[in-house]
Amino acid sequence: MLLINCPYCGERDQIEFTNGGEAHVARPKNPDQVSDREWSEYVFVRANPKGIYYERWVHTHGCKKWFNAVRNTSTDEILKVYKIGDPPPPIKKFKNTLKSPSGEPDVGSGNFAVKKT
């Protein structure tokens, strides 16, 4: 279970929060001018990396405020939380311990992420 450091309330249990998916997704400025394909990307396609990415959380059973987080999806470590409107910290700042895109060691194992390297 994750502990999430709400920027307004401090560290609380993950079950108090609801995940809001990828953060910083910009709505196209001129929806009537974009192609169906671009609109489809905006509506349906979200980043889904095995590794570090930006996401939104809302403190549903607390202050009910939205905020952003940087999390490593291969270990569930939350690397940083920051308020809505704050600039996203550059992802390169965080060390990604993964060796390959899908995060497996040289000889594959489905449970790699459980082991600490």
Binding site: M1, T18, N19, K50, E55, T73, G103, N111, V114
Partner: peptide, 13 residues
């Protein structure tokens, strides 16, 4: 579980 993850573990809740 309610968030993207590749850990193959999941939360107790």
């Amino acid at each position: 579980d309610g968030y993207n993850s590749f850990t193959q573990r999941g939360g107790y809740n």
